[in-house]
Computed example of a mutant assay.
Amino acid sequence: MSKVKYYYDPDTLSYRKIEPQKSKRYRNFALFFLGSMLFGLVCLVLLLNTNLINTPRELSLQRELKNYELQFELLDKKMEQIEEVLANIEDRDNNIYRLYFEANPIPEEQRKAGFGGINRYKSLEGFNNSEMVIATTKRLDIIKKQMAIQSKSLDEITKLAAEKEKLLAAIPAIQPIRNENLRHMASGYGWRSDPFTKARKMHRGMDFSAPKGTPIYASGDGKVTRADNNASGFGKHIRIEHGYGYMSLYAHLSNYNVKRGQKVKRGDLIGFVGNTGRSEAPHLHYEVWKDKDRINPINFYYGSLTAEEFENMLKYASQENQSLD
């Protein structure tokens, strides 16, 4: 309630009540109302910009934001784990797999290169956390690119492994006559005395002395290209193309167990020891060719001989005796 005010009237020597003017009353009310509105507006602005009062929508958005932050932290940890695993695979790929199969390693710059050209992340700009979102997206793109490169590399290694397996199976790697069937290793690769002319002559194969009819086995996987008696001096003989530049020859046979064009595996029975052609006694003349050059077959018996047997063969093969053909 407003206070009642009085004034002293000298004419009547008494106090009279002051009656407020209506215009002044309206003005005071307007000022009070305007002041109240300004105060209320200021308080509302302050409340809206503080965390003292939140609407249910704002509380929901805050919870959602915290959840996104947690998910981002988990994503970051998962990317770190993926990068660690990828780095381990890439290291083994370059330093073990590709090294073993004689393939060039993939440079680090190629594995972790970014993406040039147009701005791939323009649609992610302009947000509060754009830098973080763009950096994470770039990181994910690089990881995906690394995985694609590594996948292609492993595909290549798989092909190289399959090819290596074929190569190892194709190389003439066993003795064509078993030890229990041998009389002795008659002559090795090198300069030997010719049994007919007695002249010193280069002997480009190995002679295995064995009874007529002794089984002869393919020394590696391949295809029979010749099984005939049309080569001078060799008599009945077999030639097997192994691929990768390798060829093996088996001469002076008594009979064949294969025919031209037939595919054989290492250890398959292909023929029998004989004394056909230019031969002094029943034996197998065996040659290994690499890129059309005859090389010493003694370097290719790792698939069938023990260390002691190989040592004995090396001893006899190095003797400059007389060959049997």
Rank of each mutant, 00 (worst) to 15 (best):
P211G: 04
N49S: 13
Q319K: 09
S23E: 07
V224E: 02
K223R: 12
R63P: 00
L70W: 06
K152N: 12
I106Q: 01
S60I: 02
F32I: 07
E64F: 11
F208G: 00
S318R: 13
K315C: 03
L41E: 13
A199R: 13
K145Q: 12
V42K: 04
S209Q: 08
N51D: 15
C43P: 00
A173I: 10
H285I: 01
K112H: 13
K164G: 01
A87Y: 14
T306P: 03
K17A: 11
F272A: 01
S248V: 01
E90H: 10
L124S: 00
E108S: 04
A87D: 09
I298H: 03
G116H: 05
D221I: 02
Q110A: 08
K66L: 13
S2N: 01
Q81H: 11
P105V: 02
E69W: 03
Y250Q: 04
T55V: 10
D221Y: 10
Y246M: 05
W289L: 09
K263T: 15
D325I: 06
S209E: 06
Q319F: 12
A307D: 14
L44H: 05
K292D: 14
F234Y: 12
Q175G: 09
R92P: 01
L168C: 04
F72W: 03
G222V: 03
Y217Q: 08
R260S: 13
A218G: 12
G117M: 06
S130Q: 13
L46D: 11
T306W: 07
P105W: 02
N179E: 13
T158E: 07
S151A: 07
G271C: 04
A173V: 08
F101N: 01
I143L: 05
L253T: 01
R63E: 15
Y68K: 15
S153V: 04
K198N: 12
G126Y: 00
L99C: 04
N230A: 08
G40F: 15
D228R: 00
N275E: 14
R183A: 06
K77V: 07
M147R: 09
K263D: 12
P195R: 02
I240K: 00
T158A: 09
K22P: 03
G117H: 08
M79T: 14
E131V: 10
Q319P: 00
G126C: 01
H285L: 03
E320I: 09
Y256I: 06
N88E: 05
G126K: 00
F196W: 08
K198C: 01
A87K: 15
A281N: 03
S123K: 09
T55I: 06
N312E: 11
I82D: 03
S60T: 14
Y100N: 14
L154C: 01
F300P: 00
E69I: 07
Q71D: 15
N181Q: 06
N321A: 12
S254A: 15
Y7G: 03
R278K: 09
L99Q: 11
A135K: 08
M313H: 11
E58Y: 04
R278C: 06
N49F: 12
S2W: 00
A218N: 01
V264K: 00
K263N: 14
I118A: 10
F208V: 00
H237C: 05
E90N: 08
Y7V: 13
L59N: 14
S193L: 08
S153T: 06
E280Y: 13
Q71V: 10
S304K: 01
E180A: 11
Q262L: 06
